[in-house]
Design a protein around this nucleic acid. Structure first.
Length: 424
RNA sequence: GGAGAGGUGGCAGAGUGGUCGAAUGCACCGGUCUUGAAAACCGGCGUACCGAGAGGUACCGGGGGUUCGAAUCCCUCCCUCUCCGCCA
């Protein structure tokens, strides 16, 4: 949610920023919010005046009763009864206005950072950086799904038998490669100052709301209806919810947490596009990095996170590019997002492997994640997160880009984690 | 799955209809003392919203009810803990 105060104080700036998303309903929504807010405050003022009156009378009644002044007490009671019926009506109006306000705020996405380009879809994303050589593959080079079969690394059909499509089974060196990547990514994160956690893979409804998967993206999560719990679509959910309803002290910031978890996504409605091999799965492994930071430094920290991901991709010797998403392609909760894509040499396309975002206060308003500033007051913290990294497409790119006629070469940095230098 | 206990401020823990936004202790912040620290003593110390301010309102797990008045009584839902059973 956007902060109401921000809209009140900087309405024009908010509208200007929202324009990046190329959707003209937002300006009207902002103004509607402001109008309802005025109405709400007016009602609130009135209600609280009446309640104050009632409270005063009630106290008076207590005193009168004690003194035995029954008649005077009865008189006061009658007065209260009258005020009460009026206040109850107003209370309902107030509740209605509050609900209306909330519903309106839920419909407004985060206001993009002004660096974000106006644009409708992914074709408007800006490439801000590109690094690494796109390898020239030998004749007979294959896409990863063929390589996975050739070297017996992944069995997609067996996964179908056990569970269903999108739940691959990793075998032998394929499984070891997964384990190696997870450890490599975690060690990199720890070296960068992140504290490792192993969170639950199943979360309750409140956590789903906290990070914004609920109520909108309900269909993307697996729902255990019997216990009303959800399988996590990303470690962002349990990790960020560690800080739900928490007031941190300023010197605890920045909080940096990393965690490895499997991720479960129903991928409802996304059939037919890029579904071959490892490109899109219902279950996949990912190491996530999360930061809770002081608002003044969230963009510096975002830069650190981008550099962190770059470092990993370079160590894996994969060619990558960084895209700054345009307004229209930006997620609902993000103020800015950098997508990392690695080049998949045999499929001849870029595959998204990481997404690093600053949510500013959009998540923390819902989470109520705050810190106590120098002024002793509470302020909303900024939250950021990024994948560092998601495994399947990295594996796809590693297999494809590092394939040689005699086998698949493991990048040097990864060898101490795999324990082998070649898959052959 | 069965039985029981309980949810109060950062934590612990009182409070069973008005004097309770809530005792007390710990923690924390400021001060006195001290070369410095500790101890001791004094003072402060929940969150949110409304208001220029004075101040007001709400919140004792959530929701509803009784009452002039509810942390306290009633209903309902949720959660946690303990014991037994089962299991890694």
């Amino acid at each position: 949610m956007l902060e109401l105060n921000y809209l009140r104080e900087k309405r024009d700036e908010a509208v200007e920023r929202l324009k990046r998303r190329v959707n003209d309903t937002y300006e009207a929504l902002v103004d509607e919010v402001l109008a309802v807010d005025v109405k709400k405050r007016k009602i609130q003022h009135e209600v609280e005046g009446l309640l104050a009156e009632m409270n005063a009378h009630s106290k008076e009644i207590g005193a009168l009763m004690k003194k035995g002044m029954k008649d005077a007490a009865e008189e006061a009671k009658a007065k209260v009864a009258e005020i009460k019926s009026r206040s109850q009506e107003l209370k309902q109006d107030l509740a209605k206005a509050e609900e209306e306000l909330k519903q309106l705020l839920y419909q407004i996405p985060n206001a993009p950072n002004l660096d974000v380009k106006e644009g409708k879809s992914e074709t408007d994303n800006e490439e801000v950086e590109r690094s690494g050589e796109i390898p020239q593959l030998h004749d007979g080079a294959q896409p990863h799904w063929d390589l996975a079969a050739k070297y017996n690394l992944i069995d997609f059909e067996l996964g179908v038998k056990i569970t269903g499509a999108g739940f691959p089974l990793y075998l032998g060196k394929g499984a070891q490669l997964q384990r190696a990547l997870i450890n490599f990514f975690l060690d990199e994160a720890i070296a960068a100052g992140y504290a490792e956690v192993i969170p639950p893979l199943v979360v309750n409804e409140a956590s789903g709301y906290g990070t914004g998967q609920l109520p909108d993206k309900e269909g993307q999560m697996y729902h255990i209806t019997e216990d009303d719990l959800y399988l996590i679509p990303t470690a962002e959910v349990p990790i960020t919810n560690m800080f739900r309803d928490v007031i941190l002290s300023q010197d605890q910031l920045p909080v940096k947490v990393t965690g490895f978890t499997p991720c479960f996504r129903r991928e409802a409605g996304s059939y037919g596009k890029d579904v071959r091999g490892l490109n899109r799965l219902h279950q996949f492994d990912k190491v996530e990095i999360v930061q809770i930071v002081h608002p003044n430094e969230s963009y510096t920290r975002l830069g650190d996170m981008v550099n962190h991901v770059k470092g990993i991709l370079e160590k894996l010797e994969l060619p990558y590019r960084i895209l700054r998403l345009c307004g229209g392609d930006l997620g609902f909760a993000a103020a800015i997002t950098y997508d990392f894509e690695v080049y998949s040499a045999a499929q001849n396309k870029w595959l998204e492997v990481s997404s690093v975002s600053n949510f500013e206060t959009y998540q923390s308003t819902r989470l109520m994640c705050r810190y106590r500033g120098d002024d002793k007051k509470t302020h909303l913290a900024h939250t950021l997160n990024g994948s560092a990294l998601a495994l399947p497409r990295i594996v796809a790119a590693l297999l494809e880009n590092h394939q040689e006629p005699e086998g698949i070469r493991i990048p040097k940095a990864l060898q101490r984690f795999t324990g082998f230098e070649m898959i052959n």
